[in-house]
Design a binder for these strands. Structure first.
Lengths: 211, 211
DNA sequence: GTCTATAGTCTGATAGAC
DNA sequence: GTCTATCAGACTATAGAC
């Protein structure tokens, strides 16, 4: 009966997952330098040494947390190239919004990773950049196709993508400031829907060619 | 000749200014927990104790840095209520963009302050919140007037402000990611102009009532 | 106002037993 | 794989001389 709840002697994978979840929450709230391995160990219920057994350095733990998030982002930003450009845009932005709304720690962590010049281990750095490039590349491609087909106004794609990311990531990283602005939790389901609606409206107004 | 370059025995104000500048750069790059008072002292050319004489705690130094930035932001976000709503919008967004572009450390510091739950000293917390509220309040007021006058479409003001802040602050905090996206430094003067143009275009497309 | 010296705590990381 | 015990160094902050 392998699918029964296992409680004792969790295997290596489960322990890793557990550590990653705890570390993600802490890094999101306090930043890389603000989190000590002691606290991570306490919250996971492990000793520090056991923790260092799973992740040989603090930086490797941080890198693993970031890559995990970027993998999800890459996965959720996929678009169907058969769709018309506006549907692709909705799929891209909608996917990213859903992902950031489901894991509330993702947006602050992503933002931090951008300006925190905390160089990751080279392998994580390469892998992370690759995932990010794929995600951004999809947006570039979808905008290019829309403009070439005459369905989108010709606006600078890089500017537009920066705006889209800003509108989306900032909002879901804005914490109490955002809660105060919106009058309720930015992660409340209906608030997430309203945010999606608004971001798509902004992009539509900018891009849509009136026919 | 009081205006000659004084080198020896700088007065208290100059020393404070010097410390604030050094600390701002460091906090922007490494976050609150990532900066030690030892490093701040080294970079300012003071001893640690001399530094603690000017700022009794690390938190008070951090608070002073943040408040300084918020003061500038408040100052630059002023609008002339006699102007028509679209001109007010341009003044508001343009002022904020200019400010963040002039002090490149401001945008990352502001973002950090939002989700870093690093409670400031109560006095700084209150003062900072007040400055921020003034700045945001101006945007709210300007949108309300524009809508009431029938010059702006009726879109949710809170959503619109979140989008404006996101488009502006994220861009100027995006560091190397942004540089890569734009193909040159996001702080190059002509890049700043292009960003301003784009953000205002987005807001115009969203808000402007065609006549 | 600035210094040297230091207190006491916390850091990331390791050694070696079980 | 997990533990206890420990390392050298960095941390914020203070005391007291000049």
């Amino acid at each position: 009966m392998p699918s029964l709840r296992r409680k004792a002697t969790p295997n290596q994978r489960d322990t890793r997952e557990h550590i990653l979840g705890v570390a993600r929450d802490l890094f999101a709230l306090h930043g890389y330098a603000g989190v000590g391995m002691r606290v991570v160990a306490e919250r996971t219920g492990l000793s520090k040494s056991a923790l260092f057994h799973h992740f040989p350095t603090k930086l490797s733990l941080y890198g693993a947390v970031l890559c995990r998030i970027l993998e999800k982002l890459e996965e959720r930003s996929r678009v169907d190239l058969e769709d018309d450009p506006m549907a692709q845009l909705k799929a891209w932005a909608g996917g990213v919004i859903d992902m950031l709304a489901e894991d509330r720690q993702s947006a602050p962590l992503l933002l931090r990773a951008l300006f925190e010049e905390e160089a990751l281990e080279p392998a994580d750095e390469r892998y992370g950049n690759e995932l990010m490039a794929t995600c951004i590349g999809r947006a570039h491609e979808l905008l290019r196709r829309g403009m070439d087909a005459g369905r989108f106004h010709r606006v600078p794609p890089a500017q537009t993508i920066q705006s889209a990311i800003g509108m989306i990531v900032f909002h879901f990283a804005s914490g109490d400031f955002g809660n105060g602005m919106m009058g309720e939790s930015i992660f409340a389901p209906e608030q997430v829907d309203r945010r999606k609606e608004h971001v798509l409206l902004v992009l539509e107004q900018l891009l849509r060619v009136d026919g």
